[in-house]
């Protein structure tokens, strides 16, 4: 069944929100206005958007160090996000977490994670909780190709399969763990193959094609909600920016040609082309969407920069629940 115009517009909007948030965050980071390290999601938007479009109240997401995209995709608030990146008291984590720990517990976004492989075991716990509480909720666990080599991923996958948990493992295979190409960090090509070892389906999908991700994620999530257990959805994608920041650290580990070739399959351009062909959104329409989001970005950055830093007294607050 072809996707509705509304669904396609929704996917486009989610992706563009991620793109414009990340591009601005990258600019601010390069300009030294945002402290610390940013791992940007540019290029991989179709994955977060295609999965998040199926999630609703009560569902959860576990994220990675490259987490902004996941939070934007599930409806993260730009103001609180930028304020967090700036280390301000008005940020999502009151300035204590920053980019690598950004979270929105109300949206079920259980946190970006500074530990590669930190997310999958937590996703098992959230999915266990969904089942335990007899909800219809699911957990989406985003993780990278590099993370698929951590023991924690394998332990989590085994448990999820064993307990038939309402969980989908979403592998963002962008071809690299940091600066190490996939064929130098694992002896397999398709990470989806790993699912077989844990007794659930593994599916490979074009991670630059938002519609393909949306459709595959829809099936996997429906299956999970029916109580039929997890699915591993491997999305082949690419990060357009460097591992950290935009321009990276000045060492060549991939060619400009390679980056260019992937950029030709920019997931947003691909979707916009499709939307135009279907007569759903023309160039002017896309530009209007873009301008509206840009305005929101500008407003959020201004809010963040005008926000106060946390009071030093906050330093030892919230170590424990009171």
């Amino acid at each position: 069944m072809p996707l509705s115009a509304e669904t396609l517009r929704d996917l486009h909007r989610r992706m563009l929100r991620i793109r414009l948030f990340e591009e601005e965050a990258g600019r601010l980071s390069e300009a030294g206005r945002i402290p610390g390290a940013l791992h940007l999601y540019v290029g991989e938007e179709a994955v977060a958007a295609g999965v998040a479009a199926h999630l609703g109240p009560g569902d959860q997401v576990t994220s990675t160090h490259r987490g902004h995209g996941h939070l934007v995709a599930v409806g993260g608030d730009f103001r609180q996000m930028f304020a967090e990146l700036f280390g301000r008291a008005t940020g999502y984590c009151r300035g204590k977490g920053g980019s690598m720990h950004i979270a929105d517990m109300d949206l079920g976004m259980l946190g970006a994670n500074g530990i590669v492989g930190g997310g999958p075991p937590i996703a098992v716990g959230a999915a266990f909780s969904n089942k335990y509480r007899k909800t219809q909720n699911v957990t989406a666990c985003f993780f990278g190709d590099g993370a698929s080599n951590e023991g924690s991923f394998h332990e989590a996958a085994n448990m999820a399969g064993l307990y038939r948990l309402p969980l989908i493992f979403v592998c963002e295979n962008n071809g690299f763990g940091e600066f190490t190409r996939q064929d130098r960090h694992q002896a397999i090509r398709d990470i989806a193959d790993r699912a077989a070892g844990y007794g659930f389906p593994g599916i490979v999908v074009d991670g630059m094609d938002a519609v393909a991700v949306y459709e595959a994620a829809g099936e996997a999530i429906a299956r999970a909600r029916r109580g039929e257990g997890p699915t591993l959805l491997e999305c082949k994608t690419y990060r357009f920016f460097d591992h950290v920041g935009v321009r990276g650290m000045g060492v060549v580990y991939r060619s400009d040609d390679e980056v260019r070739a992937w950029r030709e399959r920019d997931p947003i351009t691909l979707l916009e082309r499709r939307l135009a062909e279907l007569g759903i959104l023309d160039e002017a329409g896309a530009a209007a969407v873009r301008e509206a989001i840009q305005a929101e970005v500008r407003e959020a950055v201004a809010f963040a920069e005008a926000s106060p830093f946390p009071d030093p007294a906050a330093l030892t607050e919230d170590v424990y629940a009171s």
Partner: peptide, 16 residues
Amino acid sequence: APFSPVPFSPALEAHY
């Protein structure tokens, strides 16, 4: 250091 995890915000880390 105080009895807390390391905070992100430069404003807090400076005191940490």
